[in-house]
Amino acid sequence: MSNGVGLATAAGTKSTAVAVYVTAFLAAAHKLACQVIRISPQGNDVFTFVDGGCAFFPQRFADISGHLALTLAVGLARIPGDDPAHTSAGRAADAAIAESWRTLSLSAARPDCSSPT
């Protein structure tokens, strides 16, 4: 869910200050959530880093649903399990991650995704 907040921030504003404030809010929410469910003290750092990065990555509103669907699919595929379905889902998630990185590397060439100057 917080990925969506970061992505929507990137799509909705070009202001660095707004992105910083949203990232700070997400960091506080992640810290609170990790304290409540007793994840290690550094547990919130990963969530904050990923979601904060989403807030600064050039984005379009039309792309957000696809990014969130990919995030959900990879997260669900990474739930541990020994059955063949989990194994194949894990392989599919690895392929999706590889394709996502390839797509991100190509996004710099898109004129609508170039960083503001």
Rank of each mutant, 00 (worst) to 15 (best):
T103Q: 13
S100M: 06
K31A: 06
R60V: 08
A69G: 14
S105F: 05
F47I: 12
D94H: 05
D51L: 07
A95P: 01
K14F: 00
P41H: 11
V74C: 08
D83W: 10
L106F: 02
A96V: 06
S100T: 09
I39W: 10
L70G: 09
D94E: 13
A109S: 12
T48S: 06
Q35P: 05
V18G: 09
Y21K: 12
V74R: 01
V18F: 01
A69T: 15
K14V: 03
R91V: 05
D45T: 14
I79G: 02
N44R: 11
W101S: 11
L106T: 09
F25I: 06
D51I: 05
H86E: 08
A11T: 08
S15K: 03
Q35E: 13
V5C: 05
T9L: 07
D112T: 07
R60T: 11
P41M: 08
T13V: 12
T48Q: 01
G52N: 05
F56G: 13
S88I: 14
L104A: 15
N44Q: 15
I79H: 02
I64R: 01
A8H: 00
L70W: 02
V5F: 06
S40P: 12
D51H: 15
A96T: 08
T23C: 03
I39L: 12
V46A: 15
H30P: 08
A33H: 10
K31N: 10
G12Y: 04
A108Q: 12
G66H: 14
N44C: 00
V5I: 13
H30A: 12
G81C: 10
A19K: 15
